[in-house]
Amino acid sequence: MRLQIDEHRCKGCNLCTLVCPYRIFKPGKQANRRGVVIPELDRPERCANCRLRNLYGRTLCGTCQMICPDQAISWVEEDAHVPKKVAIEY
């Protein structure tokens, strides 16, 4: 699964950057169109949920999601892998 921050809900408070044991959330650097500085994700695949949430059928750790006052953090199914035809020219 993929860890994501909902850009429409996040207000940029940085509470998530405080609580993740892997420090996956880093304070962002640039304001988006709504003037919100959304945290950046540093190798989010390290979060156990990305690999194991479906397997366990529940959220593991989940502290970031719980503390996020704006209900902006979630895990979504990764886009199914679509094999692309690549024409290789020699």
Partner: peptide, 8 residues
């Protein structure tokens, strides 16, 4: 507001 604890 941003960061308000109520949401948590």
């Amino acid at each position: 507001c941003a960061g308000c604890g109520n949401g948590t």
